[in-house]
Design a protein around this nucleic acid. Structure first.
Length: 822
RNA sequence: GCGCGUAUGGUGGAAUUGGCAGACACGCUAGAUUUAGGUUCUAGUGGGCGACCGUGGGGGUUCGAGUCCCUCUACGCGCACCA
């Protein structure tokens, strides 16, 4: 009687055994090479989805494989547990955010347990735990002391209906994510991190990150947006201050016909004060202020603006040009002012057309379809300079360099670099986040809380109304503090930190999760960091991955960590979809992991999700495909159980005798090699699994003939070993049934025999003019000449080439012979 | 608008370096086992009667192209008045 594959029983049994034996516990071991594999930790929503299953299955295969390969593997898990959903739940159901969150964490930990993932739970972190956010606050203070944190008044997204500040991500199509109201702008004093100080390093270090997908690197590069150009100072007629502008096209300086200031530019009010233009300008400013970002930055909008009644002097030719304000110039990029060259910039061109301003070309082209004196649109391509004094005739690319030199010589400008990246606004008017550990004293200003007083705990006497300022302001106990500097009564910062801060260093805390003396011990960080393999969704390509890199660099500069970059290799996994669409409640195509585990078991779920597509690509969920994976595991189970009793008696000694033996030995060794390469190198789990399936098919065929006992036993054991990272429970069970007393998790990864991979004969394809005509088996390793001879003398080939002129014969040993005839 | 990616049977996908296109799996067809359904096993399965034709379309390089080059199309993703 063959035992049935009872996955429910088996999975429970091994999960309990792993736990009892503490097999996944990891400690530093200088004798072993370390390997740190990390999956992006989840927000504890309470429900695991297929994206999680995919993410953690990938990480678990890598962790188990590396463990069997002899590495000291760190594979931790935790919770990104601060954030808005907990607060929304509090508003909706009245449950305390902490209670709601901790319940979710417990639920999700159980669900992860059911997947059989090899986490060292002793290193679990939860960002909402005071043991964690204490050190978050400590890091904030270190950043503050280093000048990386500052507070500044700035316009922020403001929902007039909810009466709160919104993060950019919470503004959807210009409307509040929660209530749908039109989002406006409001001046508020907020904390920022000076990530722009690191712009250049964040950019240049990308080149070292060879283990990152190009796509992610390009996205970060674009996000940082480095532009090289010049800053030029224009004088304003009748005004004592110069007007600085930034341009990437100093070569077009002679084509300037007007200037534009951002509406928020500090000069504007002064320049129009008391003039006849003042009312119109004020009306325009008022209009712009009430516009949402979306409206303001829409490229389809017609240009708007106002002349402010003033003129600037072009420093290179003394020309007088009018000054306008317009919302197409942004205050927070460059200097908030531009020189406008309508002939060579499309935006300036549109504006000039609308306001009837001059268009003077300064770069000409050979293109006969373009007349630069009668442009239909701005001409932005390369060409030769015209109308530009001593620069006329020069190629415009050369002119850029020459003109910058000229500006510097004359003291009217200089080379300048600008970044698109802005400083990171980290304040949130929210309750469920890390309190910013700053205290405001009327005498001393902002002062960080004393480090021995950390953590600044979140108060519990708060109200969640969803209205007004941060719920922290409703606490009677939180606000009052004493100034750490002078001891006078002072008040606490009421805002909390953006949760992206919490997730910017959690991988460091995993290295030393229980430390109550420091955020993490430098020696432990030195041992484990950097993360050798990081795995997560591509949706984090910019924000999380940039913030984490910034943290790592800043901590490196503080001497707290030993590497500048946190993640050596990055794998961005694709989404799990169903019927070509994203799984979503509204479409009703959600497949829940719990349901699949109940019906087929975790091993099947893991196997399918790794088999159905390569990890980077989208994965189309297929119920039929899941059944196929389940069928395969049953097939393996039947095969192993049919021979397990015999295997325990058979000795391990063997020698391949028959042709079938050699074929099986080949298949077995090839599979070990293929799985090792696919899992260890390029992460193509799908092809690794398909090669295991091929081995099983081979074994089913082989057992119909005469069985070489030692060989077949080796094949069975190797099959279970190579399958074990993918489907650990069933493999532990089979391993035990084969008579082993140790965990398969602790076994060594099997080695393959190079010699068995060389077959006696190889099949050679014979082509005529590139078309396959014949196949022949030839001895392995014969020479090119012999191969050519065999092919041309082949009967069928002789027939097909007779009467034709053989022009050329190309022989590729081990592969093919191509005969070119006329 | 700019940047990036993808396109292969009825379906998911394979072909890692320019060398047999379609591995593996799903589905389907037929047969065996079974009282029957399910399970399992065996065989077949890109198109065409055929010489041959086939990797989104067109062109090119090469003895040889899914793979390299040019060009077009469709879809997906990111950024978007960044001077």
């Amino acid at each position: 009687m063959i035992d049935k594959y009872n996955f429910t029983e088996i999975e429970k049994k091994w999960q309990d055994k792993w736990k009892a034996a503490d097999v996944f516990k990891t400690t530093e071991d200088e004798d072993k090479e370390k390997y740190y594999v990390l999956e992006m930790f989840p927000y504890p929503s309470g429900k695991l989805h297929m994206g999680h299953v995919r993410n953690y299955s990938i990480g678990d295969v890598i962790a188990r494989f590396k463990t069997m390969k002899g590495y000291n593997v760190l594979h931790p898990m935790g919770w990104d547990s601060f954030g808005l959903p907990a607060e929304n739940a509090a508003i909706k159901h009245g449950a305390a955010p902490s209670e709601w969150t901790w319940n979710n964490i417990d639920e999700m930990r159980d669900q992860l347990g059911e997947l059989g993932l090899s986490y060292d739970w002793d290193r679990e972190v939860a960002t909402c735990h005071p043991d964690y956010y204490k050190w978050m606050q400590w890091i904030f203070i270190q950043f503050y002391k280093k000048g990386l944190a500052y507070k500044k008044e700035n316009p922020v997204n403001w929902c007039p209906s909810c009466q709160t500040v919104l993060a950019n991500e919470q503004v959807v199509d210009g409307q509040c994510e929660r209530c749908g109201a039109e989002v406006g702008k409001k001046e508020l004093s907020q904390w920022y991190f000076k990530i722009t100080d690191y712009a250049d390093r964040l950019l240049s270090n990308l080149e070292q990150l060879e283990g990152w997908p190009d796509k992610v690197k390009i996205m970060q590069r674009n996000w940082i947006g480095k532009s090289i150009g010049a800053e030029v100072t224009f004088e304003i007629e009748g005004f004592d201050k110069g007007l600085d502008i930034f341009t990437t096209r100093p070569d077009t300086l002679y084509g300037v016909t007007y200037m534009v200031l951002a509406p928020e530019h500090p000069y504007v009010k002064e320049l129009v004060s008391g003039s006849e233009y003042e009312p119109a300008v004020k009306a325009y400013l008022d209009k712009v202020q009430h516009m949402s970002d979306i409206e303001r930055t829409s490229t389809t909008n017609e240009k708007t603006g106002e002349f402010i009644g003033r003129y600037a002097i072009n420093p290179v030719n003394g020309k007088k040009v009018p000054i306008y304000i317009s919302d197409y110039v942004l205050m927070d990029y460059g200097t908030g002012a531009i020189m406008a060259v309508p002939a060579h910039d499309q935006r300036d061109f549109d504006f000039a057309k609308k306001f009837g301003l001059d268009i003077i070309p300064v770069v000409d082209t050979d293109d006969p379809t373009i007349d630069v004196y009668d442009l239909k649109e701005a001409f932005a391509a390369e060409g030769n300079m015209i109308n530009s004094d001593l620069f006329t005739g020069m190629n415009n690319k050369e002119a850029i360099v020459k003109i910058i030199d000229y500006l510097e010589e004359k003291g009217i400008g200089k080379k300048s670099i600008n970044y698109r990246l802005r400083d990171w606004l980290i304040s949130r008017q929210r309750y469920w986040g890390t309190p910013i550990p700053m205290i405001y004293c009327d005498d001393c200003g902002w002062v960080p809380e004393k480090e021995e007083n950390l953590p600044v705990l979140l108060p519990t006497d708060v109200e969640f109304t969803g209205k007004g300022e941060s719920p922290l302001t409703t606490s009677k106990t939180f606000k009052d503090a004493v100034c750490p500097k002078c001891g006078k009564p002072a008040r606490r910062e009421m805002d909390t930190m953006d949760t992206f801060l919490d997730s910017s260093w959690y991988f460091l805390r995993y290295c030393d999760a229980k430390n109550d003396k420091e955020a993490f011990n430098l020696d432990k960080v030195k041992y484990w960091m950097s993360v050798d393999q990081y795995i997560g969704g591509v949706e984090h390509a910019i924000l999380h991955l940039m913030y984490a890199r910034f943290f790592q660099m800043a901590l490196y500069d503080l001497g707290l960590v030993s590497t500048e970059e946190p993640f050596t290799n990055l794998l961005t996994q694709g989404m799990v979809i169903k019927d070509g669409k994203k799984m979503s409640k509204s479409i009703g195509n959600v497949v829940s992991p719990a349901e699949i585990i109940e019906k087929y078991g975790a091993d099947t779920a893991r196997l399918f999700i790794l088999f159905a597509a390569p990890p980077e690509r989208e994965l189309d969920w297929s119920d039929k495909g899941v059944e196929g994976s389940y069928r395969f595991l049953n097939r393996v189970h039947r095969l192993v159980y049919e021979y397990a009793d015999k295997c325990r008696e058979w000795t391990g000694e063997w020698k391949a005798e028959s042709k079938a033996d050699k074929e099986l030995a080949y298949a077995m060794n090839y599979t070990i090699k293929k799985v090792s390469d696919d899992v260890g190198g390029r992460f193509n789990f799908n092809t690794a699994i398909s090669s295991i399936m091929e081995l099983v098919n081979e074994m089913y065929k082989y057992k119909e003939g005469e069985i070489n006992q030692g060989l077949f036993k080796a094949a069975i054991e190797n099959l279970v070993l190579v399958l074990s990272p993918f489907t650990p429970h069933i493999c532990e069970e089979m391993w035990e049934h084969l008579g082993h007393t140790s965990f398969i998790y602790n076994e060594s990864w099997p080695k393959y025999d190079e010699k068995a991979l060389v077959r006696d004969t190889v099949e050679i394809v014979v082509q005529i003019n590139g078309k396959v005509k014949e196949k022949m088996d030839v001895q392995t390793g014969i020479s090119k000449q012999e191969l050519e001879k065999l092919a041309t003398e082949n009967e069928k080939i002789q027939k097909l080439t007779s009467g034709k002129n053989v022009v050329k014969v190309i022989a590729v040993p081990g592969k093919l012979v191509n005969i070119v005839v006329k």
